[in-house]
Design a protein around this nucleic acid. Structure first.
Length: 300
DNA sequence: CTCGATCCCTGGACGC
DNA sequence: TGCGTCCAGGGATCGA
């Protein structure tokens, strides 16, 4: 489950390994996860990958213009979302192709950049110019760059549950299930608490917990819980530091209470019922009041 | 605006 | 051993 730290790890590896290489040709396998397969096949060959960066959970392979002179400046990039099981790495041409290899780009140094993704939950798209800018604008702030003030306004202005907000890529780009649960555990906030109801102190704790955890996870090259491997084929180490995620029934590292698992925002959410107190009242009280005929909420 | 449900997809875990 | 079933999960979409 590549999230921000895993994608950052892959981006750094690819930057080291393939930045500067020219793409000579592209071969696609299954294309149902690619926005515009014909465009990918047509536009990539001839371009140089001048840098690889992370944008939320996307890898951005920034591409040079084709060398046919004098055209307008158009930023272009291949966007790659690894979904659950995506892997992008350069390999020697002779290396046998594993099952579920869906894109092979021949590079000018004799290697091939290969995209492997058994479940095809990922996404790939070639975008340029305004279309690219438009796409990037859809996403929220980078959690590592957002200051406390911006973080606060993005969280406290919303009535959704904090877990849903953390997972919402239009609020913050790059946070997924693991790091949402880990930061809520560290900040001692229940995943069902509403954003608007977080106290200033809690938002501050969450902001700091999230940034600290993401930074540390990047240092440890991400979490390899299923089969995540970086661009060099190496697993990460951060899974050894998980305090909540995947620890149902195991003792909380702070208070020994057993970690619980509930579904919030459609996702498994692991938390300590002792350290992360459930919100009292709120939504539930309002529903009960309405059932008793005390509701006088205006419609829309 | 926010919610839950549903779909996409495959492999791994589990039960028999 | 082999088969069926369930589940994981990010994101899009739809109806409530």
């Amino acid at each position: 489950m590549p999230e921000l730290p895993e994608v950052e790890t892959v981006a750094r590896g690819l930057q080291r390994q393939i930045a500067g290489r020219r793409i000579l040709s592209v071969t696609l396998g299954k294309t149902d996860f690619i926005d515009n397969p014909e465009t990918v096949e047509k536009e990539l060959p001839g371009r140089r990958i001048y840098s690889v960066v992370r944008y939320g959970k996307f890898l951005l392979l920034r591409l040079t213009q084709k060398e046919n002179g004098g055209e307008t400046e158009r930023q272009s990039a291949l966007l790659v979302h690894l979904g659950m099981t995506g892997m992008l790495s350069p390999q020697p041409v002779g290396e046998p192709q594993v099952k579920h290899t869906h894109m092979v780009a021949l590079l000018d140094d004799g290697r091939e950049l290969r995209y492997i993704d058994p479940r095809r939950f990922g996404r790939m798209a070639y975008l340029a110019g305004e279309r690219l800018q438009e796409e990037l604008r859809r996403f929220g702030a980078d959690p590592l760059e957002a200051g406390l003030e911006e973080f606060t306004s993005r969280i406290r202005g919303r009535r959704a549950r904090i877990k849903a907000l953390l997972l919402d890529q239009q609020v913050l780009r790059g946070v997924g299930n693991i790091y949402a649960d880990e930061s809520l555990w560290k900040a001692r906030i229940h995943p069902k608490r509403l954003g608007v109801r977080l106290r200033e102190e809690q938002v501050k704790r969450l902001h700091s917990a999230l940034q600290g955890i993401l930074a540390r996870a990047i240092e440890l090259r991400g979490s390899s819980i299923a089969d995540f491997l970086d661009a060099e084929g190496q697993p990460g180490e951060y899974q050894r530091h998980h305090r909540a995620y995947g620890r149902e029934g195991k003792p909380c590292f702070r208070c020994k209470t057993r970690i619980k698992r509930v579904i919030v925002a459609g996702r498994s959410s692991y938390f300590c019922p002792q350290c992360q107190k459930a919100p009292r009242g709120g939504r539930e009280l309002r529903v009960r009041a309405r059932e008793r005929g005390e509701g006088h909420l205006k419609k829309s």
